[in-house]
Design a binder for these strands. Structure first.
Length: 511
RNA sequence: GAUCUGUUCGUCUAAAGGCCAGGACCCGGGACUUUCAAUCCCGGAAUAUGGGUUCGAUUCCCAUACAGAUCACCA
């Protein structure tokens, strides 16, 4: 790489950050870091109608949670600011380039009202061509500085008639785009339309803004979703007209993330319908409707990123578990897929489970603690708590599972599952546990192996299969048929609590 | 409808002309065991179709089929 790469993520602050968006961030970030480059966050807030308060902070929170923090952003500006397009517009940046395009004949003024545009679309719409475009064939029939004479245009302009600036695309030329993932893609300009570049409110559209800002911010590589491919030739045309193609960033259009069932882009609705999140973090829309995020349902950020990275990329070795650091070291655009990938929530959970197993109890503790607190469960400080996490982490797929799996350590089992032992409960067992309590009370040391050894010895003496006694003991200590080894549990609970729990359930059972 | 992009087990994918198409998720079975997990073993399942090119095609070419994206003063 000749110079330090500069990459950007350029979301519009309109709502929750989607899985696909996070993956776009990730690939941009990985590539930047892989090559010692810079990762910038630029806010594309040019659509004031869709702007949502708080969405910008939300995006930053997502990046922070993921650990994909930008080197330059509206919150920590670098030398290429401002980093919000609305602020850039205030400085007249886009206007200047739009005017230049008009002056040089690459763009023109269009005075058509929304009604007139609608009228045009319905008038020229046919079964063969359901979406007529504002292009070289139709622009002569519309009200613009190409169809009107200069005098009329000037008076319209002087009279304050609302107008937009549209790119002038001449037919019959070929635009070639060299995509890092897909190779050479050719478009004929005949199929392109005269896209609006500058809106009537003076704001640029995405097309103008992305080109101008990528140039001004010296972006070297631009990775974005595949849905942008159809408008890529317009951007190439703009680059040629404004700054020269040789300065254009290298493009890559990332494959789409598809819905698990059927086909098509994964949407928030699919998540609601199928019962999984599609946003990174909880998102509350302006109407107050909450959409769950991966963080809140109990994902580790590392697992989330790991899963996303593998949706469309692999290093060819068969390795599936990667830390962010490893991804940075191994990531390469050459190995990014062309085809879209269906999102599989089961596999996503598998990644998280692996990450939890792999995490230390100490690392998990601060993440899990609030979950217990939330449920009103008082937890001990320090080692006592992490010991429990160590005991149960391998059976937790989501962080939230820890509460379910671990609550009985800290709270007395209120409703023990008597049904599963009552049927086989008898005098002999009653006697056994009474004796067990006596024995345990006298035990010099309270430690799992010793507890187990004594238990088995006594079972043998009583001529009852240990298995028939362990089930009741588990219900007594845990309350249900789950959890780690019973003697490890007893050891952790301590003598007093263990005996208390045994006694309590014995009182509930009738031989 | 037009333009563009895709297509290997149900899903994510490996094999960048050449060992029985490999791994993972998932599902089924077994082992272990003290429940549930974890772990280990075994099994299930794929190159969309048709033509070429080649001694040999998952891989290269063409056609067909299917799927997707886009077609706003939204990004």
């Amino acid at each position: 790489m000749s110079k330090k790469p500069r990459l950007r993520f350029a979301p519009s602050p309109t709502g929750g950050l989607h899985l696909g968006g996070v993956r776009t961030v990730l690939y941009n970030y990985l590539f930047a870091k892989r090559h010692g480059g810079t990762f910038v966050l630029r806010i594309e807030d040019t659509d004031q109608a869709r702007y949502v308060d708080g969405a910008e902070q939300y995006i930053l929170d997502c990046l922070q949670w993921c650990g994909l923090e930008p080197d330059e952003s509206p919150f920590n500006p670098g030398p290429y600011g401002p980093y919000r397009q609305s602020e850039r517009k205030e400085k007249g940046i886009y206007r200047e380039y739009a005017d230049r395009l008009v002056k040089e004949g690459h763009a023109y003024y269009a005075f058509d009202s929304p009604e007139q545009l609608e009228e045009m679309r319905s008038r020229y719409s046919t079964p063969e061509n359901p979406s007529p475009q504002y292009n070289h064939t139709l622009r002569g029939k519309m009200r613009n500085s190409l169809s009107l004479d200069a005098e009329e245009t000037a008076s319209l302009l002087a009279g304050g008639t609302p107008y937009v600036i549209r790119i002038r695309v001449d037919p019959g030329q070929e635009v070639c785009l060299n995509d890092m993932i897909r190779g050479e893609i050719r478009f004929s300009t005949s199929g392109l339309d005269d896209k609006v570049l500058l809106k009537a409110d003076g704001m640029p559209t995405y097309h103008l803004a992305v080109v101008v800002d990528d140039y001004l911010m010296e972006i070297t590589h631009a990775f974005r979703g595949e849905e942008w491919l159809p408008s890529a030739p317009v951007h190439v045309l703009l680059w040629k007209a404004l700054f020269g193609e040789q300065h254009m960033p290298k493009w890559a259009h990332l494959p789409l993330i598809l819905k698990p069932d059927g086909n098509g882009k994964l949407s928030k609705r699919d998540g609601d319908r199928l019962g999984f999140p599609v946003f990174a973090l909880n998102w509350t829309d302006p109407k107050g409707e909450l959409t769950k995020g991966f963080r809140e349902i109990g994902f580790l950020p590392g697992a989330f990123l790991n899963m996303l990275a593998m949706l469309g990329w692999n290093d060819g070795s068969g390795q599936e578990l990667f830390t962010l650091q490893e991804l940075i070291e191994k990531f390469s655009m050459e190995r990014v897929h062309k085809g879209g990938a269906k999102f599989d929530f089961e596999k996503a959970k598998w990644f998280n489970h692996e990450w939890i197993k792999w995490s230390t109890a100490d690392a998990l503790a601060p993440l899990v603690k609030p979950l217990f607190v939330e449920k009103g469960i008082a937890i001990p400080e320090g080692e006592r708590f992490t010991q429990v996490l160590g005991l149960i982490k391998e059976r937790c797929t989501l962080l939230t599972d820890f509460v379910q799996q671990g609550a009985f350590f800290f709270t007395f089992p209120a409703n023990p599952d008597l049904a599963s032992i009552q049927a086989k409960w008898n005098e002999a067992k009653q006697l056994f546990f009474a004796e067990l309590i006596r024995q345990y009370e006298l035990l010099p040391e309270w430690e799992a192996d010793r507890l187990e050894a004594d238990f088995k010895q006594m079972a043998a003496a009583a001529e009852i299969k240990p298995g028939d006694l362990l089930q009741p003991l588990r219900i007594m200590l845990v309350g249900g048929k789950y959890g780690p080894g019973v003697f490890a549990i007893a050891a952790w609970l301590g003598r007093q609590e263990t005996i208390h729990r045994i006694r309590h359930v014995m009182g509930l059972l009738r031989p």
